[in-house]
Amino acid sequence: MQAIDARNLTKSFGDLVAVDGISFSIASGEIFGLLGPNGAGKTTTISMLSTMQKPTSGTATVNGHDVVTREDDVRKSIGIVFQDQSLDEELTAYENMDFHGRLYRIGGEERRRRIGELLALVGLADRKDDLVKTYSGGMRRRLEIARGLLHEPKVLFLDEPTLGLDPQTRNHLWEYIARLNNEKGITIILTTHYMEEADRLCDRIAIVDRGTIVALDTAENLKHSIGGDVVTITSPDPDKIADLLTAPWVSGIERHDGSVTVRLQEADRHIPGIVTAIHQSGIGINSLSVRKPTLEDVFLHYTGKTIRDEEADGKETIRMFQRARRR
């Protein structure tokens, strides 16, 4: 069975189309990533799938339940960790869990047992009676994940699960998430703007930009799809270099400010030829690097921008602002 099936999901806020006809489906047991810059529409997509917002048009089912007509069935079968913290800081970790368990109508004995287990799973058992306001960012995140699992959801939504956490904590969380998926078979859909996170965790990745999915595949296939290795040459005259490299083994050339990105199979073999050719034309080279493609290159390839560029973009800032205000 498909855990999630979205068809032409669209959400607009006035003139702004935050999510523009997104379609995808996620198999049971998969870890699925929505990768894109802030304001790309990832959180809005999650909000619609988790019944927090109604789609403007299109349909989606989660665990076979329609997100609009079977709201409560969807809610019972999903767990969600929001991008922004959603704990009560004045309560202890145990009380936060207990509150959640009661809301999902888990009986007393069962509730206590599961809370104990989950707090142990995320390594918070010995701090369970401390107020959440004394917790660090990483501990809070782990608590939220434990809470999201308390009612044994089939699908877990993680909206930017490691945003603002230090690298070590991030690594820990990745291990937890992978283990949950492995041991409990929970389907996980996560949003992120960290390439590395998507690369390490996700079985399949949808690259989202400006409300649409521009590419969707496994990390491996996405990297292959853009045509082999990446050679970046910075030079005072990048345009000429681009004109020069017309050999059939060059599968793609992109010009940027002050540099050229060349894609080709088996770059190691062709580098000497490239350097010689540029040299003979009398063009200077400031630097040259060769590497395997990353998701960042994939993103650049499909959107023409790096994620960081995108985030600095003025329009995106306005989107973010509007999103912040709606909160």
Binding site: F82, S86, L87, H100, R147
Partner: peptide
């Protein structure tokens, strides 16, 4: 609760 995000936790529950 709205600003600290806790309201979401309550609103997304099946109640």
């Amino acid at each position: 609760d709205k600003q600290f995000g806790f309201l979401k936790e309550t609103l997304v529950a099946p109640v």
